[in-house]
């Protein structure tokens, strides 16, 4: 299957995005902010369709919109967001609504909506692979620079604050990184299924690993395996890639939960 250009592009793009999403997702799950990833993807839909309407590549509309929303959410603060679930729900519905409106005006492609919502990794061209590599490198580099204080602020916010770590600053920076990673994920699995790459592998890794470094590596490796196996399965089965990636992501998480249960018998609780 690797003799086709589009397959090589798909493997490259999915590989890059899966690693970035796994690493960023580890911190997202650790901070209990997985909802933010979901919300950013919804908002990104408006950006992508809006960009398509004015003749810009949807990826850039997605990036611009998610990063702006990420910084905005970071500035409002997690506590603030949690207390405004109704307002946020309405804003998210509104952004999908606007996305639909933009698509309505942009009548050229009916497939555009499906691609944005559920992804189409087999349609990724060589140029997009390079853009994804550049964005991925940027988000991993930024995350690398702030990872130490970010980890401290995530695990022990009050102690970190007392030791001079600015909680709002790292919250904003991190959500900007999450926004970039979300925009990347949306290229592969679409805005509705970002959870599969961003949260699934990271949550499974945290169920299995007691050390931060090992957990980050496992999250990236799981994401990579799920994404590549998903593309291969789609190639042979002719079912959509995004379906396979979500199925593998769910299966890996379930397997991690079961493994963890088996390790400590007698501990039963919610998933």
């Amino acid at each position: 299957m690797l003799q086709y250009d589009f397959m090589r592009n798909a493997f490259a793009a999915a590989g890059i995005v899966a690693v970035v999403a796994g690493v960023v997702g580890y911190f997202l799950v650790l901070r209990g902010q997985t909802f933010a990833g979901h919300a950013l993807a919804h908002v990104g839909f408006t950006g992508a369709t809006g960009a398509a309407l004015v003749g810009i590549a949807p990826l850039w509309g997605l990036v611009a919109m998610t990063v702006a929303a990420g910084i905005g959410m970071g500035a409002i603060g997690e506590r603030g967001l949690a207390q405004r679930d109704v307002a946020i729900g309405i804003v998210l519905a509104l952004s999908l609504g606007f996305g639909l409106l933009f698509l309505h005006f942009y009548t050229a492609y009916a497939t555009q909506a499906t691609t944005l919502l559920f992804g189409n990794v087999l349609a990724v061209d060589r140029r997009t692979v390079w853009v994804l590599a550049g964005l991925g490198a940027a988000s991993l580099a930024l995350l690398g620079i702030i990872s130490r204080p970010l980890l401290f602020a995530s695990l022990q916010p009050e102690l970190a604050e007392a030791k001079g770590v600015s909680l709002p600053l790292y919250s904003v920076l991190f959500l900007a990184i999450v926004a970039l990673a979300t925009a990347e994920c949306a290229q592969i699995v679409g805005v509705l299924l970002v959870f599969a790459l961003m949260v699934g592998p990271a949550a499974a890794a945290q169920r299995l690993c007691g050390a931060v470094a090992a957990g980050v590596v496992l999250a990236a490796a799981l994401g990579l395996a799920e994404a590549w196996a998903g593309i291969a399965a789609a190639y042979y089965s002719d079912w959509p890639t995004s379906f396979w990636i979500t199925a593998l992501s769910a299966a890996a998480y379930l397997a991690a939960v079961v493994t963890e249960r088996l390790r400590r018998p007698g501990m039963l609780g919610p998933l």
Binding site: L30, G144, R148, L151, L159, K163, Q206, V212
Partner: peptide, 25 residues
């Protein structure tokens, strides 16, 4: 504390120079 599988050692370690930029190594 959050119900994490994270080891106590890694949790404690996050406070070592936690305010400095860089990787948590």
């Amino acid at each position: 504390l959050p119900p994490l599988r994270l080891s106590g050692r890694d949790f404690v370690a996050s406070a070592v120079d936690g305010h400095r930029l860089g990787l948590p190594l």
